[in-house]
Design a protein around this nucleic acid. Structure first.
Length: 550
RNA sequence: GCCCUCGUAGCUCAGGGGAUAGAGCGUCGGAUUCCUAAUCCGUGUGCGCAGGUUCGAAUCCUGCCGGGGGCGCCA
């Protein structure tokens, strides 16, 4: 609709020979209904290049536009806003065409991109905690949004299965093995080991597999890590997250890709040796200080295999690379972009989403968590307590730029205070209406046809249609800002508008959806079905179920 | 000290150049003998501070204040 109005304005500009002024004007939905269904700032923006009073410009445009049969009126207001008031019929027709678009496939972008999104990438040294959960859900939902817009998305998980942390895991395992089997295990594990019950129980489960390699921490570590990774996958599956590709850090060593990328960096002239180490001159790319690639003891820093990994990514030729990671890794952004650029790729294609922290509370009571002591709440526990739907929904309720307080009490509560239930209930109610109608003998297949909707004239009905028409815009916005929470807010707006509309049926017969003459009934049901479709789509994109009944 | 992020109603948060800044919760008051009450309506002296850009700023720029994160030859 916005696009159509913009076209109309452009035609009007042409008819006045004012086209091609290039200025950046928009058509938008005003906050206030008295300012029209849509409005444009075109006259104000063009005032400067045309050297005319904005209200004069607006007047001329309005005169040219009033001819269209779809407008009820076009007004000039304030400093020169052009306010468009559409006829109800315009909305009725828009709803028919929206509903006929097979679940809104027409919103696909004109130029689909191939996008690689890397997220979670949790070390396979322990269970996933809350922070991983947020990362996983936001990353996956962003992927779903991009897919809904027609992009081709690959979800990738980078496994840190090589470094010291695997050896540390092995040492921790060996300690617990000895402890369990009454051997002298040495001192209690300190900060340089993985602790917590999960290690001990894991070792118990795997005693048989590791008992012959107690002298080889790395080997033990790999055995444990393999199982831990499987558990990570299981946890992710519980919130409906699946990766297309797991990329092993270890494979970079085996294929000597790390050496190759170091050679490529050397060639770029951005490296130098100092104090027995090889440095990468990231300060040439805006970093605070240069970074070490090869330590003086000959081993790599964690950064070096990551460079090789990103070189591999870029060689695979995607249009965009998204990396979702914790905000505590923010320092990594500049140096990774530097590496990509030095390797001859476009660093603008590499984007980072930095996730802020998650904390946990139960009503008003904060739940203490200390990662250091291994005493933290896992994603699995959360899902078991509040369910997959609430888990996903709650992780999506806040912009990832801000820290998130996850309220277990609220997530569990089956009331309208809980936004998950609120959104799902709206969908269930719509489903119930269709079910009731079918039970009453209404032939719902008639809704598949294009029908006349001239009875849908209540303001709330037109508002609902107007909001539904924003579907594509809202998704595009969420995608281009990389902000999945926008989908949740849109979903809640729609749910609220519907609940309001529905409840009015209790006092006003015009708002009854089922007690109507057959012809009107079908029109109301057409709206019901279309809205249900929209809500189901949005819930799907969030990875939350859309129940038919609650 | 430097870098990133956030600061909006009592609380939790939307809003990323437009007109009178919104929602949920909380408070207080009300509706519905109903197509599921897992519902709805009413109730609000708020954009951290100071400059700047603009016809127009919560939004963009600069500085300051305050919270969080980061500044290893750790990952």
């Amino acid at each position: 609709m916005k696009v159509w109005i913009k076209q109309q304005v452009e035609e009007a500009l042409e008819s006045l020979a004012w086209q091609g002024l290039g200025a950046d004007w928009v058509v938008e939905e005003p906050k206030q209904s008295s300012h029209g269904d849509y409005s444009s700032n075109v006259a104000m923006v063009l005032a400067k290049p045309l050297k005319k009073n904005p209200r004069e410009i607006a007047q001329a445009l309005a005169d040219a536009l009033r001819l269209s049969a779809r407008f009820d009126k076009v007004e000039i207001a304030g400093p020169g806003f052009l306010n468009f008031f559409l006829k109800a019929q315009t909305y009725q027709e828009a709803l028919v065409s929206l509903a006929s678009q097979e679940a809104f496939k027409a919103n696909h972008v004109a130029e689909p991109q191939r996008i690689l999104i890397e997220f979670v990438s949790a070390n396979p040294t322990g269970p996933m905690h809350l922070g991983h959960g947020r990362n996983a859900v936001v990353g996956d939902t962003l992927a779903r949004i991009l897919e809904a817009l027609g992009h081709q998305v690959v979800r990738e998980f980078y496994i840190n299965d090589h470094g010291v942390q695997i050896e540390t895991l092995g040492r921790s395992g060996i300690y617990y093995f000895k402890k369990i089997h009454g051997m002298s295990a040495g001192e209690a594990p300190g900060e340089d080991m993985y602790r917590g019950e999960y290690v001990e129980t894991l070792v118990k489960d795997l005693s048989h597999e590791i008992k012959n390699s107690l002298g080889d921490p790395l080997s033990v570590g790999k055995t444990l890590a393999k199982v831990l990774l499987e558990r990570v996958k299981e946890d992710l599956a519980k919130v409906d997250i699946y990766f297309d590709h797991y990329f092993s850090e270890d494979s970079l060593y085996e294929s000597s890709k790390i050496k190759q990328s170091i050679e490529a960096l050397k060639k770029s002239g951005k490296t130098y040796e100092e104090e027995g180490a090889l440095w990468f001159k990231t300060t040439d790319f805006g970093d605070d200080k240069d970074r070490v690639l090869i330590k003086s003891d000959g081993s790599y820093t964690y950064f070096t295999p990551d460079i090789a990994y990103h070189q591999d990514k870029f060689k695979r030729g995607f249009d965009l690379y998204l990396n979702v990671m914790g905000a505590d890794h923010g320092g990594y952004v500049t140096r990774m972009k530097a590496a990509v650029e030095a390797l001859g790729f476009d660093p603008q294609k590499l984007e980072f989403l930095l996730m802020q922290l998650v904390s946990l509370k139960r009503g008003e009571v904060p739940v203490a968590m200390s990662k250091r002591s291994g005493d933290y709440v896992t994603l699995k526990e959360i899902v078991e307590e509040v369910g997959a739907d609430a888990t996903r929904f709650f992780f999506l309720m806040r912009s990832h730029h801000t820290s998130l307080e996850f309220d277990l009490e609220l997530a569990k509560s089956q009331s309208s205070e809980n936004p998950v239930y609120y959104a799902q209930y709206a969908h269930a109610r719509l489903a119930s209406l269709l079910r009731k109608a079918a039970e009453a003998g209404i032939d719902l297949s008639k809704l598949a046809q294009k029908i006349d909707l001239s009875s849908l004239t209540l303001p709330e009905e037109l508002d609902l249609i107007k909001l539904m028409l924003q579907f594509g815009d809202r998704l595009n916005l969420a995608a281009s800002f990389r902000e999945p929470h926008r989908v949740i807010f849109y979903l809640l707006e729609l749910a609220k508008l519907f609940q309001n509309y529905y409840t009015q049926g209790k006092t006003d017969p015009r708002y009854r959806l089922l007690d109507q003459e057959e012809e009107v009934l079908l029109q109301k049901l057409f709206l019901v079905r279309a809205l249900k479709e929209v809500l189901a789509n949005l819930l799907k994109i969030c990875g939350v179920s859309a129940p038919e009944k609650m």
